[in-house]
Design a protein around this nucleic acid. Sequence first.
DNA 1: CCAAACGCCGTAAACGTTTACAGAGTGTGC
DNA 2: GCACACTCTGTAAACGTTTACGGCGTTTGG
Lengths: 356, 356
Amino acid sequence: MADGPTITTIAERAGVSIASVSRVLNGLPTRQDTVRKVMAAADELGYVRNAVARSLKSRRTHQVAFAMADVGNPAYLAMLRQIQPVLKAAGYRLVLHSTDAVVADEIDVLHSLGERYVDGLIMSPLRVTGQHLEMLAAARAPVVIIGSVPEGTRVDNVRADSRTGVKLAIDHLHSLGRRRIGMVNGPPDTVPGAARGAAYVEALGALGLPYDEELVQIGDFYRAEGGRAVAALLDRVPDLDALMCANDLIALGALDVLRAAGRRVPQDVAVVGMDDTDLAAASWPSLTSVSLGSAERGKAAAELLLDRLQHGEREPRLVTVPPRLVVRASTSASATGPAAVPYDMTGRTDKEGGRS
Amino acid sequence: MADGPTITTIAERAGVSIASVSRVLNGLPTRQDTVRKVMAAADELGYVRNAVARSLKSRRTHQVAFAMADVGNPAYLAMLRQIQPVLKAAGYRLVLHSTDAVVADEIDVLHSLGERYVDGLIMSPLRVTGQHLEMLAAARAPVVIIGSVPEGTRVDNVRADSRTGVKLAIDHLHSLGRRRIGMVNGPPDTVPGAARGAAYVEALGALGLPYDEELVQIGDFYRAEGGRAVAALLDRVPDLDALMCANDLIALGALDVLRAAGRRVPQDVAVVGMDDTDLAAASWPSLTSVSLGSAERGKAAAELLLDRLQHGEREPRLVTVPPRLVVRASTSASATGPAAVPYDMTGRTDKEGGRS
DNA sequence: CCAAACGCCGTAAACGTTTACAGAGTGTGC
DNA sequence: GCACACTCTGTAAACGTTTACGGCGTTTGG
């Protein structure tokens, strides 16, 4: 692990100046003879360019940061899976931050943007505070926010439409004849929590169903918390016939608790999740879920960021990804045993789900 | 996005030298009066230290890279989930590389270590070639390898024990009375593929079962590939009564195909997966799986790397994480409907599965 | 009252690159 | 033979820090 050679070492060995070495290494016009000498010296010494020094001079690090609330969440991981290849193809490295949805940590990430160890940032905050907005306005590098920000915020923004998403789910449950539809939500002070809670009320109203606040239970966006919330809800409202869960993890918790309580899904209680993560397709019974396009949002965010990195100043853009209802066994009795294999049995290129 | 202030800007405004500014910012002994002036100037200007310049001088980037075969693979994500907080706590940022298990890409990552944009690397290669070993020997920064390397390789190394893992699974199937146990493996030229294939033969031998190569099918470590391999195997050996799958994704593919073929799991065919990913617990039916301790391996790797970063030269270490069989519904009929909720219903701190 | 000791500060060099500029050398045209 | 253009190369400055070193002014001790 001795100190590696620098362009100075090479210059000495090749008998040229460091400027010439730099020119050769960067492919700038140089006499063939010099090119050969420098290349030979570089090879012999096993030279590797120092990225830090280069960044200092060029003011570009070729790194981009992605700050998510929690590395453990499949929805963020779906974004990550899309962001990574887009950035890689453009020659950027990805730096990961997991903020645990703690506002102070997010502010910290925004602040550290000023340290210039990355060229840009993609961030997905659960809560958007005034401090967030201040820091965004003052940011010294391009930022893309995944999640809704207040109108007029001058920042590239990629949104899901969970309002329409919830409506899709409620309409679906209604069309199945369900009328006592419970809602298990995450904290209402989060952006998604607030949006999904409001959308639930709205969707019921549009269908002419009464809004009964007994049917709403606040938990948190985790499986165990979701399970506990569902248990409480079942105690209070034993006759409910459907559950709208604010994300897939809550829905998995609901399945756990319903099974333990001896309620059949979907016959007794239909369950809908949200985010359409891998877990929904794999769960038992498989979970009807509203896809909010995590993958698409990740991809769009990466592309917006790249565009801004390459073209500099331009008007902030807003991309909204439409939701999609994916019906599976947890709402549709007929879907209980899909006899078909969910992918092409002849092809050879499908790599769904990745390697191990 | 104008250029931010530097210590020179601060020095001018505070009427001191840049050396004093640096001293104040680093908390070195300085007269109170000077400290106040510098701090005031820094605050007014909204100064943020430039991490790149600092790294150039200090030769430390406070970044660590994690190179995995595929960001999409839950087993690597389980590692990532453990690595991230360990490094974060120690003040390191995490840079992610997804190599798609392409040897050239992995070599590239190893090579780019020389660029010194990270202080260290954790890598999990699927194949270990001579070129890997050469580059490892010549590496200019600490490296930890997750996965087996040849004896005598001087590198910190964290291993699973998939040999014992396969044995656990085969013994389990045998104890359930299964005698026609098929094996669906990934490519035998990968380290895990080779180990698991050999372990299968060995485990059968230890039980006095004949080894029938008809029962072995090579596919790849993906869900769809796994499904296709299982379909082929079923065609050839219709009377098999158990399947040992080399990872969970293959096992999910097996479940897909068995369901489509009308075979009951576990009554007709018992299925065991490997890696014990989130998908195993969530699948339908839930999947018995051999945990190879992805999480523990990730954590151990991060700790080994930190130790080496902090204490420099020392003998390379080897950590081996023992496997554990997690029995679920896909092998145990009685486990088909676990009536218990798999977590504490009273606690408030469990955050299994993360947020959304 | 002088020397030594000490605390604080500024100058300058260094980290490893890139690049503006000017100089050296060669070739061309008149 | 000279001016000019052109190609290639070297010198030096710059990016924004950290830090060794020496100088200056004040305090302390004899």
